[in-house]
């Protein structure tokens, strides 16, 4: 087969199906990202606590960081379901499988990000009489999230790609719909190229989104849109200042 034997127009014809696969992958990975962020943050805090507690977190992190997504999802979909007698949908199984793994990665990302916040800020909060929880959520966490964002971004790209292994349980993500299209059109090269392009493009967009979020977290905010937000905020404060007579 020469290159012109490939029917590239098929990609356009089946764009809806392909993008549908991406949409499923995005849904599974975003839900898993949110869950992983919560569990990961909790694990990071546990890991930074005193020994008996920190060991639990360390054990979890070291186990689940090493499990491949494919194994995880098979284990959840077939093993855990059998063990607990619950029938997870493929979507649920995918979310759980990803959350188990990526909460371990996020725990590590959060741990180093929390460690990057200067200890003086915690002390300043303590000296002001703020409670520990308030210091954590209002002083430490906002700064740690800013530090963690670039790492979360690249981790999320990996997460999205890992959904491709869920083709094994029949989740209709990018690879699964590609396989389905190949089996009816007999154009594997065309559709796998399309699949690759979709992942590359998705990674590019994800990177842009995370860059934007990161710049939103920068103080003072960067970028035109954020500068506008900033101006509003400043106006509110200057109104207050004027009210008080300069």
């Amino acid at each position: 087969m020469k290159i012109f034997d490939y029917d590239w127009s098929l990609i356009w014809d089946y764009r809806g199906v392909l993008l549908g696969g991406l949409w499923v992958a995005v849904q599974v990975s975003v839900v898993a990202l949110v869950i992983s962020a919560v569990i990961g943050l909790l694990l990071a805090v546990l890991r930074l606590s005193r020994p008996p507690i920190s060991w639990i977190a360390t054990a979890y992190i070291n186990v689940f960081r090493g499990v491949p997504a494919l194994v995880s999802v098979v284990w959840v979909y077939f093993g855990l379901a059998f063990l607990l007698g619950i029938n997870f949908s493929v979507f649920q199984a995918g979310v759980i499988a990803l959350s188990l793994l990526y909460s371990a990665f996020l725990a590590e990302i959060f741990r180093s990000a929390l460690g990057a916040v200067p200890p003086g800020h915690r002390e300043a909060g303590q000296a002001l009489g703020l409670r520990g929880s308030r210091i954590f959520f209002s002083v430490i966490l906002p700064q740690a999230v800013k530090v963690a964002l670039p790492n979360i971004g690249s981790m999320y790209i990996g997460m999205l790609k890992d959904t491709s292994t869920f083709t094994i349980i029949g989740l209709l993500e990018v690879v699964r719909v590609t396989q389905n299209l190949v089996s009816t059109t007999f154009q594997p090269f065309v559709f796998y190229t399309a699949a690759a392009l979709i992942y590359v493009l998705a990674a590019f967009v994800i990177d842009m989104i995370f860059r934007f979020i990161e710049s939103a977290y920068t103080r003072p905010p960067h970028g035109r849109l954020l500068a506008a937000v900033r101006r509003r905020q400043r106006r509110k404060i200057s109104e207050l200042v004027e009210e008080m007579g300069g």
Partner: peptide, 12 residues
Amino acid sequence: GMVFQQFNLFPH
């Protein structure tokens, strides 16, 4: 109240 050598203002 306490004032530190490194100011320790919350940067965000």
